[in-house]
Design a protein around this nucleic acid. Structure first.
Length: 377
DNA sequence: GAGACGTGGAC
DNA sequence: TGTCCAAGTCT
């Protein structure tokens, strides 16, 4: 068995002279050739060997959608976006409202706003052609260190150092890195830089991520079938789940508020648009009170957008990344002439709106079948 | 650098 | 049921 020390020596030699990659890289790539996941945006190693290249637009779109988001959640959104906007120029020309509505439900809505800005930049500044360098990509809206490296490596075969949660987990186990994240990130990046090969860097990055997603999982990793087992310090120490070590999390506060679902005689619901920045920025909502830390009476129908016979419909609880929200939901028949700062939308059209999940929950609570006739389903 | 920023699935 | 967390970015 090759030791970690021998491996590092080989890696070092590898970068002094371009030569055969070390065993750990060869084994990882061989595993990837055999066990890679087939994904809609991905070109398989076989197809790549026949000269097929990934579409940078597809890679970029998928990478942005995959930020903090599971493959399963992304797949239908990726298909929907490609069908609606086959090229980056199409996306650049699309109304922002349409993009936000298409993104609704996927979360982290700043991604959708930046997606549109990035498409406009690529279409306007670069004639619809993505920059093919890490630095060029990094300068675009919504593209950070990870996405710039991933697109550079996967779409353009550049030896960029791709660091994501999967890679952090794999490398922290490989080298049994005891220092907690995020402080240990620079050390991990150094390790990954030393591993990244000049040959097939994109497949190396995807192999690391596939390994992290399917074998080197956070819980109960499948070390028995891991191609890197013989190189893994965490495996040799018999406790791979100990890695990566992370800083302790903080407790999630609770906020309270009230939400108001008004229905006019035409069967339309009163909606409004949230400001572009911050939580759910640019998304659609029903009128609500402010969301405050204290349950102090500010959550009653007294604080509705207008006077009416508001009926209580119970509460909706929704957990965001950094707080839990408990909304008291109210419903009322309304005069259709009353529309303070919003608009009236037919119930049958609600499925086409840019409604975040929390608002779909609120409306469903007040109008149980509101999304049953969703024209998008 | 730490906090803001969504959602749904797995255990 | 609660906890974790998934191909991060921006400020």
């Amino acid at each position: 068995m090759e030791t970690i020390g021998e491996h590092l020596d080989q890696t070092h030699r590898h970068f002094q002279h371009v030569t055969t990659p070390p065993a750990i890289i060869r084994q990882l790539i061989a595993w990837y050739d055999r066990h890679h996941r087939d994904l809609p945006w991905r070109v398989t190693p076989t197809a790549a060997a026949q000269g097929k290249r990934p579409d940078p637009y597809h890679i970029w779109l998928s990478e942005v959608m995959l930020q903090q988001t599971t493959v399963q959640a992304v797949k239908p959104y990726f298909a929907k976006f490609l069908a609606a906007w086959p090229t980056v120029a199409d996306l650049a020309a699309a109304p922002t409202e349409d993009v936000m509505a298409a993104w609704a439900g996927l979360g982290y809505y700043a991604r959708a706003r930046n997606l549109k800005k990035c498409a406009e930049a690529v279409a306007g500044l670069y004639g619809g052609v993505f920059p093919d360098t890490e630095d060029g990509l990094r300068a675009l809206p919504g593209i950070g260190d990870y996405t710039a490296a991933a697109v550079a490596a996967i779409a353009f075969n550049r030896p960029a150092v791709v660091m994501d949660g999967n890679v952090e987990r794999v490398v922290s186990r490989l080298y049994a890195i005891d220092a907690p994240l995020p402080g240990s990130k620079p050390l991990m990046k150094t390790r990954v830089r030393d591993l990244t090969p000049e040959d097939r860097p994109g497949d190396f990055a995807q192999a690391m991520m596939d390994l992290g997603a399917t074998i080197c999982t956070p819980k109960r990793p499948a070390c028995a079938i891991c191609p890197l087992r013989d190189h893994c310090l965490a495996f040799s120490e018999h406790d791979p789940e100990r890695f990566p070590v992370k800083a302790a999390k903080k407790e999630k506060p609770v906020r309270f508020g009230a939400a108001f679902v008004a229905v006019n005689p035409e069967g339309e619901v009163l909606l409004r648009r949230r400001v572009d920045s911050g939580l759910l920025g640019g998304m659609t909502e029903v009128p609500t009170t402010d969301w405050t830390a204290r349950q102090d009476g500010g959550q009653t129908a007294d604080h509705a957008p207008f006077r009416s016979a508001w009926q209580s419909c119970g509460t909706v609880t929704h957990v965001f990344t950094h707080f839990e929200l408990r909304l008291s939901v109210f419903r009322a028949k309304a005069d259709e002439t009353i529309h303070p700062g919003g608009w009236w939308e037919p119930v049958a059209n609600l499925g086409a709106q840019a409604l975040p999940t929390v608002m779909k929950k609120v409306i469903s609570q007040a109008i149980p079948l509101a999304f049953e006739k969703d024209p998008n389903r």
